[in-house]
Design a binder for these strands. Sequence first.
DNA 1: TTGCCATCTTACGTGCACGTCACGTTAGCA
DNA 2: TGCTAACGTGACGTGCACGTAAGATGGCAA
Lengths: 156, 156
Amino acid sequence: MSTAHAGTGELRIGQLAKRTGTTPRTIRYYEELGLLPVATERDAGQHRLYDEADVERVLELLRLKDLLGLSLDELRDVVTAEEARGALRAEWHEGDPSAQRRRQILEEAGTHIAGQLALLRRRREKLDELERELRSRQGKLRVRLRELDHRSPPDS
Amino acid sequence: MSTAHAGTGELRIGQLAKRTGTTPRTIRYYEELGLLPVATERDAGQHRLYDEADVERVLELLRLKDLLGLSLDELRDVVTAEEARGALRAEWHEGDPSAQRRRQILEEAGTHIAGQLALLRRRREKLDELERELRSRQGKLRVRLRELDHRSPPDS
DNA sequence: TTGCCATCTTACGTGCACGTCACGTTAGCA
DNA sequence: TGCTAACGTGACGTGCACGTAAGATGGCAA
Protein backbone atom coordinates (compact mmCIF):
# COMPACT_ATOMS: atom_id res chain seq x y z
CA MET A 1 0.00 0.00 0.00
CA SER A 2 1.33 3.39 -0.94
CA THR A 3 1.48 6.44 1.27
CA ALA A 4 -0.59 8.44 -1.15
CA HIS A 5 -3.14 9.51 1.44
CA ALA A 6 -3.55 8.86 5.10
CA GLY A 7 -6.96 9.77 6.42
CA THR A 8 -7.07 13.47 7.05
CA GLY A 9 -4.61 15.65 5.18
CA GLU A 10 -5.23 13.85 1.96
CA LEU A 11 -4.46 16.09 -0.95
CA ARG A 12 -1.62 18.30 -2.00
CA ILE A 13 -2.10 21.24 -4.25
CA GLY A 14 -1.34 19.37 -7.45
CA GLN A 15 -3.90 16.71 -6.65
CA LEU A 16 -6.53 19.26 -5.76
CA ALA A 17 -5.84 21.03 -9.01
CA LYS A 18 -6.32 17.90 -11.07
CA ARG A 19 -9.46 16.90 -9.26
CA THR A 20 -10.93 20.29 -10.02
CA GLY A 21 -9.63 20.61 -13.54
CA THR A 22 -7.49 23.60 -12.85
CA THR A 23 -3.90 24.40 -11.89
CA PRO A 24 -1.92 24.93 -8.69
CA ARG A 25 -1.44 28.54 -9.67
CA THR A 26 -5.17 29.06 -9.67
CA ILE A 27 -5.55 27.43 -6.28
CA ARG A 28 -2.91 29.67 -4.78
CA TYR A 29 -4.43 32.67 -6.45
CA TYR A 30 -7.82 31.86 -4.98
CA GLU A 31 -6.26 31.47 -1.58
CA GLU A 32 -4.57 34.82 -1.99
CA LEU A 33 -7.93 36.41 -2.78
CA GLY A 34 -9.49 34.80 0.24
CA LEU A 35 -11.61 32.39 -1.75
CA LEU A 36 -9.94 29.45 -0.11
CA PRO A 37 -8.84 29.22 3.51
CA VAL A 38 -5.16 29.43 4.23
CA ALA A 39 -5.14 25.68 4.38
CA THR A 40 -4.86 23.76 7.58
CA GLU A 41 -2.48 25.48 9.97
CA ARG A 42 0.47 25.59 7.70
CA ASP A 43 3.65 27.23 9.02
CA ALA A 44 4.68 29.14 5.93
CA GLY A 45 7.07 27.26 3.76
CA GLN A 46 5.31 23.95 4.15
CA HIS A 47 3.10 22.20 1.67
CA ARG A 48 -0.57 23.04 1.61
CA LEU A 49 -2.90 20.19 2.47
CA TYR A 50 -6.50 19.77 1.39
CA ASP A 51 -9.34 17.34 1.78
CA GLU A 52 -12.43 16.34 -0.14
CA ALA A 53 -14.39 19.26 1.23
CA ASP A 54 -11.90 21.57 -0.45
CA VAL A 55 -12.42 19.74 -3.71
CA GLU A 56 -16.12 20.45 -3.45
CA ARG A 57 -15.50 24.02 -2.55
CA VAL A 58 -13.27 24.69 -5.53
CA LEU A 59 -15.66 22.92 -7.86
CA GLU A 60 -18.49 25.09 -6.65
CA LEU A 61 -16.50 28.25 -7.03
CA LEU A 62 -15.68 27.30 -10.59
CA ARG A 63 -19.29 26.52 -11.32
CA LEU A 64 -20.49 29.82 -9.97
CA LYS A 65 -17.81 31.59 -11.93
CA ASP A 66 -18.36 29.88 -15.26
CA LEU A 67 -22.09 29.25 -15.15
CA LEU A 68 -23.32 32.39 -13.50
CA GLY A 69 -20.51 34.54 -14.79
CA LEU A 70 -19.45 35.81 -11.39
CA SER A 71 -16.12 37.52 -11.02
CA LEU A 72 -13.68 36.34 -8.41
CA ASP A 73 -14.47 39.49 -6.56
CA GLU A 74 -18.14 38.63 -6.46
CA LEU A 75 -17.24 35.14 -5.37
CA ARG A 76 -15.67 36.68 -2.32
CA ASP A 77 -19.11 37.65 -1.10
CA VAL A 78 -20.33 34.12 -1.60
CA VAL A 79 -17.43 32.75 0.33
CA THR A 80 -17.86 35.22 3.12
CA ALA A 81 -21.41 34.01 3.55
CA GLU A 82 -20.29 30.42 3.59
CA GLU A 83 -17.72 31.15 6.19
CA ALA A 84 -20.53 32.54 8.27
CA ARG A 85 -22.07 29.12 7.90
CA GLY A 86 -18.85 27.69 9.23
CA ALA A 87 -18.94 30.10 12.12
CA LEU A 88 -22.41 28.85 12.83
CA ARG A 89 -21.20 25.29 13.09
CA ALA A 90 -18.52 26.36 15.52
CA GLU A 91 -20.93 28.30 17.68
CA TRP A 92 -23.34 25.44 17.49
CA HIS A 93 -20.98 22.79 18.74
CA GLU A 94 -18.80 24.47 21.25
CA GLY A 95 -20.42 27.68 22.29
CA ASP A 96 -23.68 28.88 23.65
CA PRO A 97 -25.70 29.98 20.65
CA SER A 98 -28.99 31.47 21.63
CA ALA A 99 -31.97 30.41 19.62
CA GLN A 100 -32.20 34.00 18.43
CA ARG A 101 -28.69 33.87 17.14
CA ARG A 102 -29.17 30.54 15.47
CA ARG A 103 -32.22 31.75 13.72
CA GLN A 104 -30.51 34.88 12.57
CA ILE A 105 -27.57 33.05 11.04
CA LEU A 106 -29.79 30.48 9.40
CA GLU A 107 -31.90 33.17 7.88
CA GLU A 108 -28.93 35.01 6.53
CA ALA A 109 -27.68 31.85 4.91
CA GLY A 110 -31.14 31.33 3.45
CA THR A 111 -31.22 34.81 2.02
CA HIS A 112 -27.88 34.25 0.45
CA ILE A 113 -28.83 31.00 -1.21
CA ALA A 114 -32.06 32.56 -2.39
CA GLY A 115 -29.98 35.26 -4.01
CA GLN A 116 -27.93 32.73 -5.89
CA LEU A 117 -31.05 30.93 -6.98
CA ALA A 118 -32.48 34.18 -8.27
CA LEU A 119 -29.34 34.79 -10.28
CA LEU A 120 -29.59 31.28 -11.60
CA ARG A 121 -33.17 31.76 -12.65
CA ARG A 122 -32.38 34.93 -14.54
CA ARG A 123 -29.66 33.06 -16.36
CA ARG A 124 -31.97 30.26 -17.21
CA GLU A 125 -34.58 32.62 -18.58
CA LYS A 126 -32.05 34.17 -20.87
CA LEU A 127 -30.94 30.74 -21.95
CA ASP A 128 -34.54 29.85 -22.73
CA GLU A 129 -34.89 32.97 -24.80
CA LEU A 130 -31.79 32.10 -26.76
CA GLU A 131 -33.01 28.58 -27.25
CA ARG A 132 -36.33 29.74 -28.62
CA GLU A 133 -34.52 31.94 -31.08
CA LEU A 134 -32.25 29.14 -32.22
CA ARG A 135 -35.12 26.71 -32.57
CA SER A 136 -37.04 29.22 -34.60
CA ARG A 137 -34.17 29.50 -37.03
CA GLN A 138 -33.81 25.79 -37.15
CA GLY A 139 -37.47 25.54 -38.03
CA LYS A 140 -37.14 28.00 -40.86
CA LEU A 141 -34.21 26.11 -42.24
CA ARG A 142 -36.16 22.88 -42.16
CA VAL A 143 -39.04 24.46 -44.01
CA ARG A 144 -36.74 25.57 -46.76
CA LEU A 145 -35.14 22.17 -46.97
CA ARG A 146 -38.54 20.60 -47.32
CA GLU A 147 -39.40 23.04 -50.07
CA LEU A 148 -36.29 21.91 -51.85
CA ASP A 149 -37.21 18.27 -51.41
CA HIS A 150 -40.52 19.06 -52.94
CA ARG A 151 -39.19 20.60 -56.10
CA SER A 152 -36.11 18.49 -56.61
CA PRO A 153 -35.50 15.68 -54.15
CA PRO A 154 -31.92 14.67 -53.35
CA ASP A 155 -30.39 11.93 -55.42
CA SER A 156 -29.25 9.59 -52.70
CA MET B 1 -40.74 66.01 -36.73
CA SER B 2 -37.08 65.46 -35.95
CA THR B 3 -34.50 64.05 -38.27
CA ALA B 4 -33.65 61.28 -35.85
CA HIS B 5 -34.05 58.49 -38.38
CA ALA B 6 -35.06 58.40 -42.00
CA GLY B 7 -35.91 54.97 -43.26
CA THR B 8 -32.75 53.11 -44.08
CA GLY B 9 -29.55 54.30 -42.45
CA GLU B 10 -31.19 54.71 -39.12
CA LEU B 11 -28.64 54.39 -36.36
CA ARG B 12 -25.29 55.84 -35.59
CA ILE B 13 -22.80 54.06 -33.44
CA GLY B 14 -23.84 55.73 -30.22
CA GLN B 15 -27.45 54.75 -30.74
CA LEU B 16 -26.56 51.20 -31.60
CA ALA B 17 -24.45 51.03 -28.46
CA LYS B 18 -27.28 52.20 -26.25
CA ARG B 19 -29.78 49.86 -27.83
CA THR B 20 -27.50 46.97 -27.13
CA GLY B 21 -26.35 48.06 -23.72
CA THR B 22 -22.76 48.47 -24.69
CA THR B 23 -20.38 51.19 -25.89
CA PRO B 24 -19.18 52.58 -29.22
CA ARG B 25 -15.74 51.28 -28.44
CA THR B 26 -17.08 47.75 -28.23
CA ILE B 27 -18.92 48.11 -31.52
CA ARG B 28 -15.79 49.29 -33.29
CA TYR B 29 -13.79 46.55 -31.65
CA TYR B 30 -16.21 43.93 -32.87
CA GLU B 31 -16.03 45.36 -36.34
CA GLU B 32 -12.26 45.25 -36.18
CA LEU B 33 -12.43 41.57 -35.25
CA GLY B 34 -14.77 40.86 -38.11
CA LEU B 35 -17.78 40.24 -35.87
CA LEU B 36 -19.65 43.06 -37.49
CA PRO B 37 -19.59 44.01 -41.15
CA VAL B 38 -17.66 47.11 -42.11
CA ALA B 39 -20.93 48.99 -42.09
CA THR B 40 -22.65 50.12 -45.23
CA GLU B 41 -20.13 51.27 -47.80
CA ARG B 42 -18.47 53.86 -45.73
CA ASP B 43 -15.62 55.85 -47.32
CA ALA B 44 -13.23 55.90 -44.40
CA GLY B 45 -13.63 58.91 -42.18
CA GLN B 46 -17.38 58.99 -42.32
CA HIS B 47 -19.82 57.95 -39.69
CA ARG B 48 -20.88 54.36 -39.47
CA LEU B 49 -24.54 53.67 -40.05
CA TYR B 50 -26.57 50.77 -38.76
CA ASP B 51 -30.09 49.41 -38.87
CA GLU B 52 -32.32 47.26 -36.73
CA ALA B 53 -30.78 44.10 -38.11
CA ASP B 54 -27.47 45.21 -36.67
CA VAL B 55 -29.09 45.74 -33.31
CA GLU B 56 -30.27 42.15 -33.39
CA ARG B 57 -26.91 40.93 -34.47
CA VAL B 58 -25.07 42.66 -31.67
CA LEU B 59 -27.60 41.50 -29.13
CA GLU B 60 -27.14 37.95 -30.26
CA LEU B 61 -23.39 38.17 -30.13
CA LEU B 62 -23.59 39.46 -26.59
CA ARG B 63 -25.98 36.70 -25.62
CA LEU B 64 -23.74 34.02 -27.02
CA LYS B 65 -20.78 35.56 -25.30
CA ASP B 66 -22.31 36.03 -21.88
CA LEU B 67 -24.68 33.08 -21.72
CA LEU B 68 -22.63 30.42 -23.41
CA GLY B 69 -19.32 31.88 -22.39
CA LEU B 70 -17.93 32.06 -25.90
CA SER B 71 -14.83 34.13 -26.54
CA LEU B 72 -14.87 36.75 -29.25
CA ASP B 73 -12.61 34.45 -31.17
CA GLU B 74 -15.14 31.66 -31.00
CA LEU B 75 -17.83 34.10 -32.00
CA ARG B 76 -15.92 34.62 -35.21
CA ASP B 77 -16.81 31.10 -36.26
CA VAL B 78 -20.45 31.77 -35.54
CA VAL B 79 -20.38 34.92 -37.58
CA THR B 80 -18.60 33.25 -40.45
CA ALA B 81 -21.39 30.74 -40.64
CA GLU B 82 -24.00 33.44 -40.58
CA GLU B 83 -22.28 35.27 -43.35
CA ALA B 84 -22.56 32.08 -45.33
CA ARG B 85 -26.26 32.41 -44.74
CA GLY B 86 -26.05 35.87 -46.19
CA ALA B 87 -24.15 34.55 -49.17
CA LEU B 88 -26.96 32.10 -49.64
CA ARG B 89 -29.50 34.87 -49.83
CA ALA B 90 -27.43 36.60 -52.44
CA GLU B 91 -27.04 33.51 -54.53
CA TRP B 92 -30.69 32.80 -54.10
CA HIS B 93 -31.93 36.10 -55.37
CA GLU B 94 -29.57 37.12 -58.08
CA GLY B 95 -27.63 34.08 -59.14
CA ASP B 96 -28.26 30.61 -60.33
CA PRO B 97 -28.07 28.44 -57.28
CA SER B 98 -28.41 24.80 -58.12
CA ALA B 99 -30.67 22.80 -55.89
CA GLN B 100 -27.58 20.89 -54.85
CA ARG B 101 -25.89 24.03 -53.74
CA ARG B 102 -28.91 25.32 -51.92
CA ARG B 103 -29.26 22.10 -50.05
CA GLN B 104 -25.62 22.09 -49.11
CA ILE B 105 -25.69 25.59 -47.68
CA LEU B 106 -28.90 24.99 -45.81
CA GLU B 107 -27.49 21.86 -44.27
CA GLU B 108 -24.37 23.60 -43.18
CA ALA B 109 -26.40 26.26 -41.51
CA GLY B 110 -28.44 23.57 -39.82
CA THR B 111 -25.36 21.83 -38.53
CA HIS B 112 -24.13 25.06 -37.14
CA ILE B 113 -27.30 25.88 -35.29
CA ALA B 114 -27.45 22.35 -34.00
CA GLY B 115 -23.98 22.91 -32.62
CA GLN B 116 -25.07 25.99 -30.77
CA LEU B 117 -28.08 24.18 -29.41
CA ALA B 118 -25.85 21.39 -28.16
CA LEU B 119 -23.68 23.89 -26.39
CA LEU B 120 -26.76 25.44 -24.90
CA ARG B 121 -28.01 22.11 -23.64
CA ARG B 122 -24.74 21.35 -21.94
CA ARG B 123 -24.92 24.69 -20.21
CA ARG B 124 -28.44 24.06 -19.11
CA GLU B 125 -27.54 20.70 -17.66
CA LYS B 126 -24.80 22.22 -15.60
CA LEU B 127 -27.18 24.92 -14.46
CA ASP B 128 -29.65 22.26 -13.41
CA GLU B 129 -26.97 20.52 -11.44
CA LEU B 130 -26.10 23.72 -9.66
CA GLU B 131 -29.74 24.39 -8.97
CA ARG B 132 -30.24 20.99 -7.42
CA GLU B 133 -27.29 21.59 -5.16
CA LEU B 134 -28.57 24.98 -4.09
CA ARG B 135 -32.07 23.69 -3.47
CA SER B 136 -30.70 20.86 -1.40
CA ARG B 137 -28.92 23.33 0.84
CA GLN B 138 -31.97 25.47 1.04
CA GLY B 139 -33.93 22.44 2.16
CA LYS B 140 -31.46 21.63 4.89
CA LEU B 141 -31.62 25.17 6.14
CA ARG B 142 -35.37 25.05 6.27
CA VAL B 143 -35.30 21.85 8.26
CA ARG B 144 -33.05 23.43 10.81
CA LEU B 145 -35.22 26.50 11.04
CA ARG B 146 -38.24 24.32 11.64
CA GLU B 147 -36.37 22.50 14.38
CA LEU B 148 -35.75 25.83 15.98
CA ASP B 149 -39.38 26.82 15.69
CA HIS B 150 -40.25 23.60 17.41
CA ARG B 151 -38.08 24.12 20.46
CA SER B 152 -38.41 27.88 20.80
CA PRO B 153 -40.66 29.70 18.39
CA PRO B 154 -39.82 33.25 17.39
CA ASP B 155 -41.35 36.03 19.45
CA SER B 156 -42.96 38.05 16.71
C1' DT C 1 -21.44 80.70 -40.96
C1' DT C 2 -20.68 79.34 -36.64
C1' DG C 3 -21.27 76.42 -32.79
C1' DC C 4 -21.37 72.18 -30.78
C1' DC C 5 -21.73 67.45 -29.99
C1' DA C 6 -21.03 62.96 -31.81
C1' DT C 7 -17.90 60.35 -34.40
C1' DC C 8 -13.49 59.38 -36.70
C1' DT C 9 -8.62 57.19 -36.30
C1' DT C 10 -4.59 56.05 -33.71
C1' DA C 11 -2.47 54.49 -29.93
C1' DC C 12 -1.38 53.69 -25.43
C1' DG C 13 -3.52 52.20 -20.83
C1' DT C 14 -6.19 49.02 -17.74
C1' DG C 15 -8.27 45.17 -14.95
C1' DC C 16 -8.89 40.50 -14.55
C1' DA C 17 -7.36 35.89 -14.18
C1' DC C 18 -4.18 33.62 -14.32
C1' DG C 19 0.87 31.79 -16.85
C1' DT C 20 5.61 31.44 -16.42
C1' DC C 21 10.17 31.73 -14.65
C1' DA C 22 13.81 31.58 -11.11
C1' DC C 23 15.36 29.70 -7.25
C1' DG C 24 15.14 27.69 -2.85
C1' DT C 25 12.68 23.96 0.13
C1' DT C 26 10.15 19.83 1.37
C1' DA C 27 8.52 15.21 1.18
C1' DG C 28 8.65 10.55 0.10
C1' DC C 29 11.48 6.81 -1.61
C1' DA C 30 15.88 4.09 -2.77
C1' DT D 1 21.66 9.82 3.21
C1' DG D 2 21.01 11.20 -1.09
C1' DC D 3 17.92 11.84 -5.13
C1' DT D 4 14.05 13.57 -7.53
C1' DA D 5 9.51 15.28 -8.15
C1' DA D 6 6.41 18.31 -6.33
C1' DC D 7 5.81 22.39 -3.71
C1' DG D 8 6.94 27.23 -1.83
C1' DT D 9 7.50 32.19 -2.60
C1' DG D 10 8.19 36.26 -5.12
C1' DA D 11 7.84 38.75 -9.26
C1' DC D 12 7.29 39.72 -13.87
C1' DG D 13 4.68 38.41 -18.24
C1' DT D 14 0.43 37.50 -20.99
C1' DG D 15 -4.11 37.40 -23.48
C1' DC D 16 -8.49 39.12 -23.63
C1' DA D 17 -11.83 42.67 -23.91
C1' DC D 18 -12.25 46.57 -23.87
C1' DG D 19 -11.20 51.94 -21.63
C1' DT D 20 -9.38 56.28 -22.43
C1' DA D 21 -7.10 60.20 -24.21
C1' DA D 22 -5.80 63.24 -28.27
C1' DG D 23 -6.52 65.62 -32.21
C1' DA D 24 -9.08 65.88 -36.51
C1' DT D 25 -13.60 65.57 -38.96
C1' DG D 26 -18.57 65.30 -39.74
C1' DG D 27 -23.22 66.76 -39.44
C1' DC D 28 -27.09 69.20 -37.90
C1' DA D 29 -29.17 73.56 -35.57
C1' DA D 30 -29.51 78.21 -34.85
